[in-house]
Design a protein around this nucleic acid. Structure first.
Lengths: 281, 281
DNA sequence: AGCTCTTATGAATCATTGA
DNA sequence: GTCAATGATTCATAAGAGC
């Protein structure tokens, strides 16, 4: 089975016009966050964020299949000491456009940015808003089950490969037995709070989000062979992950330098079989 | 120093009228969530939640000191497969009333209610909306510092007593040394994601929220001797915690049976010295 | 090989300075 | 005055070096 992964340079508003209705099974994206200072560099002013977003969301609605999902990773900035309201205004506006606000997942960033201020603590979470076109949609809950809850999962991840090997070999010690018990238990469904660390060593380009985030939603809301769209794909993370999982993907990016990066990343991807070996491990 | 803890029976809209302007240092509450089915039992219809809440919030604004905080623990229900919008509409309405939406804390409930649905996972978080009257307000960040960050704290708590003992006894293994390193570090500031477990063994009465939740905000936003208000105090948790921390408190509750419970709980409270010993441990 | 220590850094936020 | 840029603050990770 051949999997397509296409990067389109341009504004998603125009680029999507050539796609037919109800083509994609999942739209997952982390759009440019509103930022007043970056206005001159192509950023979007918070005051006009909703009106900028809505016509693009109308295209998303058109190209999404009736059973598809739209996952929007976003977080409002503070402005003048206060949380800005453009994100919650966007939720209300999208509902008026016909979207169902099915769920709000929380991405808990364990390694959030440092800092100290007199009136707030460090911001360690972002919204992953889940919109759908209908109340019946595709959801493969079994695909994202975790071994006995997030806690053990985080712990196993922290321990690392070497530790797991060591625990396996240490049969008889109390700790080895404990780990074995965890691994032996049945899988559990996750909650609507996701705990991924932001990625650090990300070869040069600033990653919009960690691979685990699109991976989780792609597994949850699509099957192999489905079509995934990221209308603000940045350096291509979503398409990389989609390809690795055997999903077709289209990524749209307005900045030429990011398109270049994304295409290079996709070309360097490991063959599918190797990737799958990695993911199943 | 004598600390007052008063339970008032009635609707907070009327009960607050007798209090002077700018009297309270902190308002922290978990109001009755909107629920269509409970309408007849005194619940509030989701469609009219904002208009029901606003006049009460106007009173809160009046009785809150300029440097005070208003913490609203709330979460929208799902209705007809979709998240309801009354909470985000309430945020917008409160801002029009003059409140600053300073921050949104996330209460991550690690042991959330079980269940399984075709279109969503278990709901493991609630909003703790932080409103203020001005950009300069009282905030004692040092009062809620945690030993070496939430991550390690949660991990240590989850491990439990037996695991810690075992780690201690296994001197020489790499893991034991690691734990020792964590314990040796200095305190760290928390983030805006709070991880309290919901309480279970709470002597008979079902707690609306765990004591740790009001405790955290009372420590953070008040000093000893300050005045705390919970306009929907339920079984009195907020007043109990305030009293234990040496803060004066007023709790208002419309249901007589809850008032009775709250007054009985307060009467049974341990003397202040003992409580303090507990909290400092 | 495995444990420990060092270092880089991540969609941050506020106060201050300068135009 | 308003707006934009700069500096200071600061911690959980992963990765890599060193013993």
């Amino acid at each position: 089975m051949t999997v397509e992964a296409k990067i389109i340079e341009g504004d998603c508003l125009a680029a999507l016009a050539s796609y037919p209705d109800e083509f994609f099974d999942l739209i997952v994206t982390s759009p440019p966050y509103a930022d007043r200072r970056k206005h001159s560099y192509g950023g979007v002013d918070p005051e006009h964020y909703v009106e900028w977003f809505l016509p693009r969301a109308a295209q998303f609605f058109r190209v999404l299949r009736p059973t598809g999902s739209f996952v929007l990773n976003i977080k409002e900035k503070t402005e003048n000491g206060e949380r800005h309201t453009y994100v919650i205004e966007l939720i209300l506006a999208l509902r008026k456009q016909g979207w169902l606000w099915t769920e709000e997942y929380i991405w808990h960033k364990k390694n959030c940015y440092p800092g100290k201020w007199p009136n707030r603590f460090r911001d360690a979470w972002e919204r992953c808003l889940h919109f759908t076109k209908s109340r019946k949609f595709k959801m493969n809950q079994e695909a994202v089950m975790v071994p006995m809850g997030d806690w053990a999962r985080a712990r196993l991840r922290t321990l690392g490969k070497n530790d797991l090997v060591r625990f396996d070999s240490q049969v008889g010690s109390g700790f080895g037995k404990n780990i074995a018990n965890w691994l032996g238990r049945t899988m559990a469904y996750p909650t609507n709070v996701l705990t991924f660390a932001t990625e650090c060593g990300n070869k040069g380009h600033s990653a919009a989000f960690p691979r685990a985030l699109p991976e989780w939603f792609i597994k949850l809301f699509t099957d192999a062979g489905d079509w995934v769209l990221d209308p603000f794909v940045g350096s291509g993370t979503t398409c990389e992950v989609a390809q690795a999982l055997g999903r077709n993907s289209v990524g749209i990016e307005i900045l030429p330098r990011y398109c270049e990066l994304a295409r290079r990343s996709l070309a360097q991807q490991l063959p599918l079989t190797e990737i799958f070996a990695h993911n199943e491990a």
